[in-house]
Every structure is written in C-alpha cells, then in structure tokens.
Design a protein around this nucleic acid. Structure first.
Length: 519
DNA sequence: CTAGGGTTAG
C-alpha cells in the first residue's frame, strides 16, 4: 500500500527554482551547495556534432522548465477537476506549447497519481491545435488501471471507443489491469466484447488474453477458455509457448512438458523459446542437471540453443556461486559460434566480477565487446562500477562513471551511483565526495532517488551521527510518496530522540503509526 | 502476443 502525503509535500513546493532542484535542496546540507547545474535531462541519442548538441540542450532546457511550471501547478491542486481548473486559469500554462514529449513527461511524472494525470490530460485536450495520440490515451488507461480505478478506466475506454481510438494494445492493457486487480472474469468479458471496439477475435487477440491469464497464474481458467475457443480460433506456436511459460511460473513443470507434446500434436515444432522457458525454470530451482538434459534434448530435436538460453544458464550458475561452470557455458557458447549480445556480456561481466576476475572483466569490456560490435548499456556500466566498488577501487569506478556520463548510447541511472555511495559510507568519506556525488545525481542528471538509495543514505547517516540530514531525506521520501521501511523509521527515530529533536521524532512516530494501521 | 541483468541489510 503506497501512502500519499500531498499536504506534506506542498510545504516544499513554493520556490521558483526547477522542481528537481527544489527536492534536492532538502537533501544536501547548504554548505555543500556550490552551484546549480544547467545541463539538460535528456541524453543525446546517437552521436551528433557540438553545435546541434548545444541547440538541443537549450530546447530541452526550456521544455524542462515548461514541464516544471505545470508540475508545480498540478501539485498545488488536488482532484482532477481542481487540477484542470487551476491549469486553465494560469496565464503561464496557457502560453506553453503542447508537444508529445511534454505530455509524455507529464504523464510519466504522474504515473502513480491518477487524479493529476487525468486532470493534466483533460487540460491538454482543451488546446484546439492539439490532438493526443492514441498511445497517450493508452498510457492513461494504464495509469488508471494500475491505481485500480476500474470505473474511470472503463469510462475512458468508452470515450476512446466513440472516437475509434481503441487498438489491440489498449485492450491488452485493459485486460492486464483487470487481471492484476483480481478480476479475470472482467478481462474475459472485455475479450468477448472485442467486436464492439471494431477489433477481431483471432489468434492474436486470443493469445493476449491467454498470456494475461497465465501471467496472473490463472492457468486453469486459461486452459478452460482455450479449450472452449479451440473450435473457433486456431492456436499457433505462440499459444503453446504462453502455456509453457504459465505452467513454469506456477512451478508445474510436468504440465509444461505435457504442453510440448500437445504442441507437437497440433503440428507445431517446439522452438528455442519453448525449451529455453523450461530451462529457465530448472535453473531457477538450481536443478542444473535437468537444464543440461534439456540441452541434450534440444540437440536431439535439431533445435540449437541461442544466446538467451546460454545467458540464462550462465547467470543462474553465477547466482548459485558456481563461477567455474558459469564461465564454461560462456566458452561453450563461443565454441559453437553463437553470437553474444549486450545482455550476455552484462551477465558475463557480472560473473567475472563475482569471481574476483577484475582484469578479465575489463578485458571483456574494452576488447571483446568492441571487437564484436556490441555496445554497452547502462547496466553494463553499472556492473563494472559495482565490481570496482566491491573491490574498493574507487578511482576506477569513478572513471567508468565518467565514461557512462559521456557515452552517446546510454546515461546513468540511480543504480549507477548506489555502489559508490555505499563505498563512501564504508570508507567513512561522508562529507564532500558524497555531497558532490548526490548533487550530480539530482542536479546534473535529474534523477529521483529510489527506495534502496534512500535507505542506504538514511541508515548510513544515522550511523555516522548525521541524523539531521537523515531526517531531511526521510521528509523528502514522504513528499515523493516513497514509503520508508519500518526498520529505517525506527533507526531514525532512535537517533533523533538521542539528539532531542522532539518535533522530528513526533513526525516519524506519527508516520510509523500510520504504517502499522495500513499493513 | 511467446524466453534472458543487478543493488540488496550491519
């Protein structure tokens, strides 16, 4: 259960600075606050020359400001109608040019706040020269469904139907959300009424329904519906793979094997996905001999494993601590000429890191990957950074972080910084380095801290006898609707009581009481 | 519409 504390949030939102800056100004002690970065949020996609880079940055910056103006206005209102009215009557908001990226950003910002999302959507629709794309409707449908606002979601669906905007993608989201809310019958009903939306009941839409049911572990219902529809709608190979995955998900692997037979009975050959799904299951149970048996069976069936199959096995072996076997899988894959990809290399680097083979990991990153034309992504960099931090190599970690920041292919996320922050706590370097790093996270990269990072910081600061700072972080968490763990709260409470911060203690205590009630 | 990351707490 996520707790909302909008009233508390408002306290922070009355300055004129960009929103993200306002949040972080409560995170970092004043003396650490040397500058406000003006760099933009967006990573530059692909390589580009310096001047267009500059132009893009200034456009991005203006759009960020537009978004910030709207966000601040929305946060000051409550309820979808109040949001709409306050935006309509704001002269600055009315001058803003509505663009796809702006609306996307706003809906993303309010993806956990359906009232604001709906209010914003109503507002952008009042601009006569702006027609939201169907994808934006879909996004809103998803937000409403996620927040379990089923009546609102269906009302929007009806609105879309009248304008002929419902696609299979919309229906997929609606069915997933009904199932997620525990109402699988309503999902089936949506499928039954597919023709009302101008869509067809065919193999593709049936597969979406079955996949939805299987992912929610409603295998028996899915099975029943499948048998019922079988005489009207022919299954394809996807249909059976969906069931194989579903059975594995609820750990009934016997049925998964049985589905393979059924598939053959319908004239479909089990493919690499069918087998890899079962292999993934055995790996997750650490029954590696079973996984290897499946590899033999694949060979016998003339269905060679692919990079996904190998990555799955290697990664699971690493998780169970068998680095030697994991690296053998990597060798085996290269031996048979199967081409690696980014996810494979991420897993390999992780394995090498866990095995303490730091230099080998660097070799893979700097030599092997470029030679095979595989670009690193954010996770690749994050694995390298985490590995260096694990081995107390701060300088190398910082070097890779810098490369990540300058990469044309990807940008840092919160996870990129977590290991470094942790290292600073372990090394008791809690002053300047860490404040600078945190400043980068929020002001340079416009990232929001997540639960794990907040927890790390608050625990670390409490231990380091800096609980005023920890308390500010606690308040910031609540203002962002990120619920602290109970342990975090009690740790913080203990510290601030010792410092005689009575008002703060009361705030934390009140919060803990509400936690107990809702759990 | 079908298969593959991690961070984890002291």
């Amino acid at each position: 259960m996520i707790l909302h504390f909008r009233s508390l949030a408002k306290v922070y939102y009355f300055h004129v600075l960009p929103l993200d800056t306002r949040i972080i100004s409560t995170l970092i002690p004043k003396y650490c606050f040397g500058y406000f970065s003006t760099s933009s949020t967006s990573a530059v996609e692909g390589a580009s020359n310096a001047s267009s880079d500059q132009a893009k940055k200034s456009v991005d910056f203006r759009r960020n400001q537009d978004a910030d103006v709207v966000i601040a206005k929305v946060l000051a209102a409550k309820g979808e109608n109040e949001v709409l009215q306050s935006l309509l009557h704001d002269s600055r908001c009315n001058k803003i040019q509505i663009t796809l990226s702006l609306v996307n950003r706003l809906l993303h910002r309010f993806q956990d706040d359906w009232k604001s999302a709906l209010g914003v959507f109503r507002w952008v629709k009042t601009f006569s020269d702006y027609k939201p794309l169907p994808e934006l409707y879909d996004k809103l449908v998803d937000i409403l469904g996620k927040m379990k606002q089923m009546e609102k979601m269906q009302a929007l669906l009806e609105e879309m139907r009248e304008d002929n905007l419902v696609s299979l993608n919309t229906i997929a989201k609606v069915m997933r959300r009904f199932c997620g809310a525990g109402d699988w019958k309503e999902a089936v009903k949506t499928f039954d009424e597919l023709e009302n939306f101008g869509l067809e009941k065919n193999t593709e839409s049936m597969n979406i329904l079955l996949d939805t049911l299987c992912k929610e572990q409603k295998l028996d219902s899915a099975r029943e519906i499948f048998l019922e529809l079988q005489s009207h709608i022919p299954p394809n190979a996807y249909t059976f793979n969906i069931f194989i995955h579903g059975w594995c998900k609820i750990k009934r692997v016997e049925e998964a094997h049985w589905t393979i037979q059924e598939m053959k009975g319908h004239g479909f050959r089990p493919c690499v996905i069918s087998y890899s799904t079962i292999i993934q299951f055995y790996c997750s149970q650490s029954k590696f001999w079973r996984a290897f048996e499946m590899l033999d069976e694949m060979a016998a069936q003339g269905c060679p494993p692919n990079v996904v199959t190998y990555t799955t096995i290697m990664h699971s072996l690493t998780k169970s601590g068998d680095f030697k076997e994991a690296l053998k899988i990597s060798e085996r894959m290269k031996l048979v000429g199967c081409k690696p990809d980014t996810l494979f290399y991420n897993a390999l680097i992780h394995t090498l890191g866990r095995a303490g083979m730091v230099e080998e990991a660097i070799y893979v990153f700097r030599k092997e990957m470029p030679e095979n034309n595989i670009n690193p992504n954010t996770s690749t960099y994050n694995s390298m950074i985490a590995m260096f931090c694990h081995h107390r190599q701060e300088q190398r970690a910082l070097e890779y972080l810098k490369n990540l920041e300058n990469s044309p292919y990807c940008k840092p996320d919160v996870q990129s910084f977590y290991p470094l922050l942790k290292l600073y706590f372990q090394a008791k370097k809690i002053d300047k380095c860490m404040a600078n790093l945190l400043d980068d996270v929020v002001n340079k990269h416009h990232l929001c801290l997540d639960l794990a990072t907040f927890t790390l910081l608050i625990h670390g600061l409490c231990r380091a006898d800096k609980c005023e700072w920890a308390y500010e972080l606690f308040r910031s968490m609540i203002s962002q609707s990120i619920e602290p763990r109970y342990l975090t709260c009690s740790l913080l409470l203990h510290e601030i009581r010792q410092k005689n911060m009575f008002d703060a203690a009361e705030v934390v205590e009140d919060f803990m009481k509400k936690m107990k009630k809702s759990s």
